[in-house]
Every structure is written in structure tokens, then in C-alpha cells.
Design a protein around this nucleic acid. Structure first.
Lengths: 331, 331
DNA sequence: GGAGAGTATGACAACGTTGTCTTGTCGCTC
DNA sequence: GAGCGACAAGACAACGTTGTCATACTCTCC
């Protein structure tokens, strides 16, 4: 592995000049810059990050803190982030985190002490963990997160959850549905709760009544979708459509519908949220909301590394598939 | 952030002694060891990895090279690996990789030059990329992979793919199936191809004929499952069961069955492979094979970091759900 | 009781960068 | 043409560890 000294020797300059060229620092004559660039190319020189970190203070590492439940969601964001890191000369270190417990802090401390990452990236539901955010701010670590709702000093990339909820309401109302069940997120998931708000907006805009008994809380997993869906569908007067605030719960609802021999979408429309692979491969394919995950991951890295302060704007897209259709005539 | 000097000062020893204690090196008296340990605890000292790397030669970083397609598979392995890294004081740096193209090498070179990882971890289908393995060995990087079939110097953790294929054959034969369609992996995916071999073993053991026209190649994705499944089910005499070599293709088959109004499992049994979340939430829930992903990820890290040379043994488990059942009587 | 073989400890120089400071060398102004 | 400011380039000391070597002390054995 060639070092900066080799480059300096080959280009007949000091190591400091090489450093300047590498870091695109000012005050280097055109001539030397070219000589150095040529030497770098010839030797295939790459700066050693460890040395850089040690001397400089920047580590060119960004920590990605996540919690397991939704691999496709995390995976999409992670890929976007990792690719952007590559462009910017950073690297992404992943760290799975429990949602609760003192252990979180120990993990975080160890990570920070060892790596001194330049930034920390939180994905939901971690992005709503007030204690963790608190600790992060104590450690004075730049931190960016997606869809966080908790107030914090850290940079937060907002997502149009509410608008998307509204979009779903409009979609279902447009199909003639009037009585729509909603499976809400667990109360702790603030960002997703906005989806419900948006849905309420849509109902209000269409002057439709909001029956509170049609709102059932779920836990964001398949099982709770079965339970909540079962609850909604066993009512005397059952809804003609159900909006589940994530795909897993929507799939649970679909399963209940199958068990009850309800036809989807003829008897019941089901809409999810997240556009997971499972929604695409379900029967019938699930109508859902798709998020630009890779772009979101990429934007967070920009915020952390590039320091572009203005929050980007994302649009969520309604993906109409076969699980939603016109409301049954009799309803 | 306390440094090794602070600890040394507090414990009234040299920095070298602190270093020895931290690295569990021999030749430290019990008394000093305790004094140092106490000082470390009191100050909350953690060694700085960048400095360690620079001086030592080890980076305490392991690179995780992956390719996107199956987020739940990668996610499971990644979590297992990251958690084990944490135990061992390592960190996992993720790097998404294209499957083909010169770009791969550029990415790899950059990663290696910048980080000098102590090891590289490849998951399938990257673990079958002969060129990449070649480059890795040129760079003299310890490299471990899961389910690789290509010969290479690198350490390979074998998986009981073949036994699992056999398990599926036995399961279906036990249910009375005689004519079983198989959707095979793309030829390049060597490890998964073993599943087909195992399946053949089972058929042979039961003295059942192998109709080659019942073997159709898929591309490991949902679409190709639809295509291959459709092909198998449009035959005059259609199979009573289909074994798809991964879940995505099995779900495609399920979709075709739904479209053709075939009842699953009454008219057709479908079995997948991988135990993805989508298989669990499908209708009917998919019979499939589950792999201990986290344990596999963890084992690879052990091989890379701990240097435990003997390959661990994993067992794949048949997860019987509702998509497979007794063969129809008339068949 | 003196040689030789451990064991415990520390001094000091790497490791490969970047930050700070110094030294030149221009070109401009009055 | 003296004085000043801007720019170009380099010398040198960090940064926080680990490796190597030197030193001092403690056994053991004949």
C-alpha cells in the first residue's frame, strides 16, 4: 500500500502538499497539483482513514442505528445511505439497537468511543427515542433522523406521512367507501400516527362521520393485524374498507378476510402502507403507499456529511393494486 | 474523551502497561492490572480504534459485502454478524455491491485502501463471484462467506442446502405427491442448486421417476415464479405439488394458482425456501425452509475475527404451514 | 553464590495523516 | 525602492495507540 510519503517522493514535493491536493485545499500551484495528481494515479494511492481520523478529527464514518423489525424498510434506506456514503468518501457502520433498556446507552457509548463517527443516523422507530436523542446530544454528535416526531436539536428529515394518509382517504372515498376501519400504529410511533391524522383530514374534507369505534390500535406486526382486522370484521355492521397503517398489519387483515371467506376487493378493500415486498407478492396484491427509501437514506447522509442544511422534500406515492376496489353496492 | 495517557497517569503506570491490560497481554502483575482496570472504569476509558489501527495493523473492522435483492435474508445475517462484532469489539461496515461490472473492483479497492478491514464477509450470491474472490485473495484479505460453491482459498461456511432439498422431497412424497414440479434457481446460483440435487436424491430414494420437463428454471424473483409456475400449471397433466427453490418464486406460484382458481393446498401444494416474512403473511401461509440466519452471520464473524478454524454446522428446518397438504385423491 | 532463564515494567520510535507555524517569493502601492 | 499583503510550499509537532527493545528484578539449578 503506497503512503503519502511515496506520493510526495515521486512528485518531488512535501507530504503536506500532497495532503493539500488530496483535500482540495487552496494555495497549490497548478503545476504541483498536476504532478501530485499524476503521482497519485500512478501509485494508486488512497489515504488511510485511520491516520486521517487520528490527525484530523474526522472519522469519515457514519453510524447507522436501526432496529430490526422491517428488513425491507431498513434495507432500502441503508442501501441508499451506503451508496451515498461511497460517493462522499464516507463509510457506513451498522449497529442494531434494542428499543428499550439501559443496554442501548452502553452500545452507543462503546460505538462512539471506539469510532468517533462524524454522524449518527437514526431510522424509525429509533428516531422517536427521546432518551437516545438526549444522550446523542450530550455526546455532541451530529445526528440526523428520518420521520422523527419528538422534538430534538438534531436534524430531522420530515416525511409527508400526513399527506399520504390523506391520499389513502381520498382513494377509498373516491371508490365509494363510507365506513372505513383504521388499524392505527402503536401510540409510541409518532411519525406513523400522522398517517391517521391525514386520514381524518380526508374524511373531514368529504364530510364523512368519524366513528371512533372504527379505529383500532395495532402493534405494527402481522399478528396484531390479524387481531385488529378480526375485531373490525366481526362487528355487526362491518366496514367496507380497512386502512392498516403498515403493510404487515394489512396482510394480517387480508388473512382474516380469507379466513372469513370475504372476497377482496369485492367485499372488502384493504390498504396498507410502506410498499414492502410482501405486499407485492400477497394475494391479491396490496394497494399501499410507497416511499422513496433509497433517496431518503441518501438525503440523510447528505445532511450529515455534506452539511446541506435545508431539508429535502419527499413525495410518497399511492401504489394502486388489486386489494382495493369499488365499495359493494349494498353498503 | 479520556486517552490512554490519562489512565496511565491515574494508575501511576506507563501507557504500555495500560495497553497490555486492555489487550489482555501476559506479564502484568495482579496488582497493576487491578489498578489499571479501576482507573479505566473510573474514567470510562475506551481505546480509540483509529489509533489502534494505525499503530497495530488491525482495524477491528469487518466489511459486509452484499447485494440487495433479498432484504430479509441479508438483514438477518447482518444483524447476527453485527451483534457478534459488538461482542468481539469489532465493527461492521456495510458495502452494497453490484453483481457484475468493473465497478465492483473499484468499490472493493477503495474500501480496502481506506479501511484496511480485518476481514471481508460475502453473502450469496456474491459468495459465488469467482472474480471478486480472486481479487480478494490478491489483496490478501481474510475472507469468509456463506454458502459459496466456487472453489477459493477463502474460508467458506457450508450450509446443508442439499439435505434441505431432500427434506422437502421427503415431505411432499410423504403427503402422497408423485408428480412434483420444481422451479430451479438461475444456474449461476450454485449453492441454491444444491437444493435441487437434494430433491432429486429424495425422489430417487423413493423410486419415483424424474420427469425433466417438470424442472423449470426461474430467476429467484416473484415475476419468474409467476412465469415458471404458470408454465408448469398450464400443462395437460399438471403436477400436484411445486417446489420453488426460494420463497419469492413460491409466492409467484401461489399467485398463479389463485388466478387459475386452484385451491391451495387441496388442488396444489406449494413449498418455498428461505422462510421470508412474505411467506408467513401470504395466503395460505407458505410451507418453507428456515435457516438460522443470525447464527450464520455470527459464525462468520467468529471465523473472521476469532479465528476459530473449524466450520460450524447448521441445520435448516422445514416449516410446515398451510400451503402444502395431502395429494388430491384422483391424481 | 553465580550463571541463566524467566517475568514484570517502562522508554521510545513507529504508524500515516492533518494542523500550525515558518519561510520564501511574488506583485502591488506610495 | 521600501513596505506590505497575498500566496505557495515545506518543516515539524501533534493525534493515541502498539511493537520493539532495554532494564531491573526474581527465581532455579548446579
Amino acid at each position: 500500500m503506497p503512503s503519502i510519503h511515496d506520493v510526495a517522493a515521486l512528485a518531488r514535493v512535501s507530504i503536506k502538499t500532497v495532503s493539500r491536493v488530496v483535500n482540495q485545499a487552496p494555495n497549490v500551484s497548478e503545476e504541483l497539483r498536476e504532478r501530485v495528481t499524476a503521482a497519485i494515479r500512478q501509485l494508486g494511492y488512497r489515504p488511510n482513514q485511520s491516520a486521517r481520523r487520528l490527525a484530523g478529527g474526522r472519522s469519515f464514518m457514519i453510524a447507522f442505528l436501526y432496529n430490526n423489525p422491517a428488513p425491507s424498510y431498513n434495507g432500502g434506506i441503508q442501501s441508499g445511505a451506503a451508496n451515498r456514503c461511497r460517493d462522499l468518501g464516507y463509510h457506513l457502520v451498522v449497529e442494531p439497537m434494542p428499543l428499550t433498556g439501559e443496554e442501548r446507552f452502553a452500545i452507543l457509548d462503546r460505538l462512539v468511543a471506539a469510532l468517533r463517527p462524524d454522524g449518527v443516523f437514526l431510522v424509525p422507530p429509533l428516531s422517536d427515542d427521546a432518551q437516545l436523542l438526549q444522550r446523542l446530544s450530550e455526546l455532541k454528535l451530529p445526528c440526523a433522523r428520518i420521520a422523527g416526531s419528538v422534538m430534538a436539536e438534531s436534524f430531522n428529515i420530515p416525511t409527508p406521512e400526513r399527506a399520504a394518509g390523506r391520499m389513502i382517504a381520498d382513494h377509498l372515498i373516491g371508490l365509494g367507501h363510507r365506513r372505513i376501519g383504521v388499524i392505527t400504529p402503536p401510540a409510541s410511533h409518532k411519525a406513523a400516527m400522522q398517517r391517521v391524522e391525514g386520514f381524518r383530514d380526508g374524511m373531514a374534507a368529504a364530510n364523512l362521520p368519524l366513528e371512533e369505534s372504527l379505529f383500532v390500535e395495532g402493534a405494527f406486526d402481522f399478528e396484531s393485524g390479524i387481531k385488529a382486522g378480526g375485531h373490525l370484521l366481526s362487528r355487526g355492521k362491518r366496514p367496507t374498507a380497512i386502512f392498516a397503517t403498515n403493510d404487515d398489519m394489512a396482510l394480517g387483515t387480508l388473512t382474516v378476510a380469507h379466513r372469513l371467506k370475504l372476497r377482496v376487493p369485492e367485499d372488502l378493500s384493504v390498504v396498507g402502507f410502506d410498499d414492502t415486498p410482501a405486499g407485492l407478492t400477497a394475494w391479491p396484491p396490496l394497494t399501499t403507499v410507497s416511499q422513496p427509501l433509497e433517496a431518503m437514506g441518501s438525503a440523510v447522509i447528505d445532511a450529515l456529511a455534506g452539511g446541506s442544511a435545508d431539508a429535502p422534500h419527499f413525495t410518497f406515492r399511492l401504489v394502486q393494486r388489486d386489494s382495493s376496489g369499488p365499495a359493494p353496492a349494498g353498503a
